[in-house]
Structures are given as structure tokens and as C-alpha cells.
């Protein structure tokens, strides 16, 4: 690890100015990913600008009935937040499916969005990786690619994005608030992470010195009926092979509104808009769910090691939606009994 200078600015504007003024400077949040990458030599910042103690640790309800989550809120605190558990269980469940309790106590919301791929070649300096070293090639193509992308990949990179939290936030129509050289801006989360294309070294659309200050969730009443399912190699403390986030609103036996996203399938959390479109107004049946999944996954281009992900994604999606429908039926039955 190369020597680095350490700064702890007093406010977000000072943090941004410090990073902009120093080439090779990086923001430090909880550090659970960055510190490891510095040990491995994947990244070599010459200055760390510690933003973990900035006053960005509040969770507040917005005037519009949504939620504003400060960027330095710890993953564990967000998962435990009563508003989140009540109004969008998908987010609490996704957070709790990620990492370990120790890591969730340290990791921040902003840092979670910026964590980098767990592709083994990205972490191994002796191999080719366009994300780590642009132009060096991709060892995963033709190599070990069981964990890799089946949607939206390019000939330059087939890495996946590892976040669970971001997949849930995607179905909640979240927006990312940043402070940068050009002032404050708000970006839809759906446009925050990039597909690899020919520049896989860029995970997001953030500019150098641009700091995430908050994530905003709009009011989405039907997200009370939402779920997150993570399929992984062991029951806890493992990254997703496939994950599904879903929120569902039914009207009788018909899908009135729906939000769907996949994790583990692409270079970014994958909003399944084609499947959503196929389901809006359709009967809430297993047949429709399977059809919608097939529509979304028609574009899948699996590699040697990860063809299993396509049926796994389809079956997980169907299973999650079936669970949400059954939950809805249970709620309706309960209410009827109460009415009597």
C-alpha cells in the first residue's frame, strides 16, 4: 500500500473541495470495500477524505410521504428502521441479506451503492481485467464465469454488481442526491450505475469529487407488499447468484402496479421493465409471471459457467410473485373475517 494522507473535513462542501483539489484523493465512508482494495493494491489513493462522520446520518420522512436517507446511515440502522420495515420491507430484507452484521454496522448507504464487483479477476492483480486496468482484457470471458453477468454485458467486461440494497432501492424508484463540482444534483438510481460497454472501469456516472449525500425514496404505497429473495451458495454471508426484488399491487386477480428488479445478473442492478410491462393489467397467475420473466430474460447471453442463472432467475421471480399474491390473499381473508 502506498502512503496516503488522511483528512477529516467538517462539512460536505469541504469534503468535495478537498477531493477536487487533490489528484488521487478518494472519499472514505465505512471503508469495508475500499480498505480491502487498498490492501490488495486494486486502488491506490494518495489521500483519503473521511466522510463517515459528516452530518449525513439522518433518516427523515419527506413532505411528500417518502424517505430521505443520509449517505452515512449505516446499513444495519437502515434495515432496522421502522418506517422502512413497515413501508418497504423489500429494502430491509435486502439489506439484511447482505454481508454480515459486523459489516452492516460499518458500511454506509452511499458506500453500498459504490461497492465494486467481486469478480475474482478484478481482485487478482496477476490477471487481465478491463475494469481494474483498462485495455488489459477480460480473464472471466473464457475463464471462471459462474458468478458473472447474463444481461447487459459487453465483450470487455462480464462482471456483476454485488449490492443487494441497490436492487431493492431500484424497485422503490430511488433517487441519488449528490454534491459535486457543479453543485447539487439528483439522479434516478436507474441511471446511476453504468453498463460496461467499452469503459467498464467506470461503475457509475459520478464525476471525480462528486459525493453522494443522500438517497431519496418517493412515496410508493404498494411497496408495503414487497419482497426480496436472494439465491446464494450458502444460507448466509454470501453474494447473490440471483436475487429478485418485487413490489406488487393487485386489483381483484389482476396486476395493477408492479416493480421488479434482478441482482446478480448484470453490471448494474437490473430493473426488469419488460417484465413489468408484460404484467401490468395481466391476471396475477403463475402463467403470466413465467411469461413476464421469459420476456425479460430473452436478451440473456449466458457464458459457459453461468447458464444456470437464466432458469434460476425465472423461477425465483415466479416464486417471489407467487408469495406476494398468496400474502395478499391472506390479508384479504383476514380483513373479511374482521368485517364479520
Amino acid at each position: 500500500m502506498i502512503p496516503f494522507d488522511y483528512r477529516r473535513p467538517g462539512n460536505p462542501a469541504e469534503a468535495v473541495a478537498t477531493v477536487i483539489d487533490h489528484e488521487g484523493a478518494a472519499f472514505l465512508g465505512g471503508g469495508t470495500n475500499l480498505v480491502d482494495h487498498m490492501k490488495l493494491g486494486i486502488t491506490e489513493p494518495r489521500m483519503l477524505v473521511d466522510v463517515s462522520r459528516l452530518p449525513l446520518d439522518r433518516v427523515t420522512e419527506t413532505a411528500g410521504g417518502g424517505l430521505r436517507i443520509g449517505a452515512t446511515v449505516r446499513n444495519s440502522d437502515l434495515a432496522a428502521h421502522p418506517w422502512v420495515r413497515r413501508n418497504c420491507p423489500v429494502l430491509s430484507r435486502a439489506l439484511l441479506a447482505g454481508a454480515s452484521p459486523q459489516l452492516r454496522n460499518t458500511a454506509t448507504v452511499g458506500g453500498n451503492l459504490l461497492q465494486r464487483t467481486r469478480c475474482p479477476y478484478f481482485q487478482d492483480l496477476t490477471t487481465a481485467c478491463n475494469k481494474r486496468e483498462p485495455g488489459s482484457g477480460c480473464a472471466a470471458i473464457g475463464g471462471y464465469n459462474r458468478d458473472h453477468a447474463v444481461l447487459g454485458a459487453s465483450e470487455h467486461c462480464i462482471a456483476t454488481h454485488p449490492s443487494d440494497m441497490a436492487v431493492a432501492m431500484l424497485v422503490l424508484d430511488a433517487a441519488v442526491v449528490t454534491l459535486g463540482p457543479g453543485g447539487e444534483r439528483t439522479l434516478p438510481l436507474a441511471g446511476f450505475h453504468r453498463l460496461p460497454g467499452d469503459a467498464p472501469h467506470r461503475d457509475t456516472v459520478l464525476e471525480h469529487g462528486e459525493l453522494i449525500t443522500a438517497v431519496e425514496l418517493p412515496q410508493l404505497p404498494f411497496a408495503r407488499r414487497s419482497a426480496y429473495r436472494k439465491v446464494r451458495d450458502r444460507a448466509s454471508y454470501a453474494f447473490a447468484l440471483v436475487s429478485v426484488a418485487a413490489a406488487l399491487e393487485l386489483e381483484g386477480g389482476t396486476v395493477r402496479e408492479i416493480r421488479l428488479a434482478f441482482g446478480g445478473l448484470a453490471h448494474k442492478p437490473w430493473r426488469a421493465r419488460l417484465a413489468e410491462e408484460a404484467l401490468r393489467g395481466a391476471p396475477a397467475t403463475e402463467e403470466s409471471f413465467r411469461h413476464a420473466a421469459d420476456v425479460e430474460l430473452a436478451a440473456a447471453r449466458p457464458r459457459d459457467g453461468n447458464a444456470f442463472k437464466v432458469p434460476m432467475a425465472r423461477n425465483t421471480l415466479v416464486s417471489v410473485l407467487r408469495g406476494l399474491v398468496n400474502g395478499a390473499e391472506r390479508v384479504r381473508t383476514d380483513r373479511t373475517e374482521e368485517d364479520r
Partner: peptide, 27 residues
């Protein structure tokens, strides 16, 4: 492991369990 994967370095940091291998002392 020194990479946040095993938990052997767990301490209570300001009252909360934390991996001491994944944070710089200066922070």
C-alpha cells in the same frame, strides 16, 4: 483472513461489533 471474511478480528467499536481489519486506526 485480514479481508473481512472471517470475523476473528471482531471488536466492539463505540459499542457495536465491527471488523477491526477493515478500518484504518487513524479513522
Amino acid at each position: 483472513c485480514d479481508h473481512g471474511q472471517c470475523g476473528a478480528c471482531t471488536v466492539l467499536l463505540d459499542g457495536r461489533r465491527t471488523l477491526s481489519c477493515l478500518t484504518f486506526a487513524v479513522a
